[in-house]
Amino acid sequence: MFALRERSRSWLVPAVLAVAALFDPSAAVAQQKVLRVAMHADVRTLDPFWTTQTIASIQAG
């Protein structure tokens, strides 16, 4: 089961940020469409064959 916001605030970026991005690299990142998610576990192991942790398979796949 999961819950999500139907409209992400990250996707509604004021146009002014586009101008700011010309001068500020961090603003360029702010312009991106970003999906922020909270998963059931932290990603600590990256090898999906070495570990059976579900989160390793999720991030891998």
Partner: peptide
């Protein structure tokens, strides 16, 4: 363009983050 897995170990904190719009998805 980008997906960020934010690790929030406390369920209450994770739920609050979703409600306030700090995250978009809560598994």
């Amino acid at each position: 363009d980008r997906v960020e897995f934010i690790w929030l170990s406390d369920p209450q904190t994770a739920q609050s983050a979703l409600v306030t719009g700090e995250i978009d998805y809560l598994e």
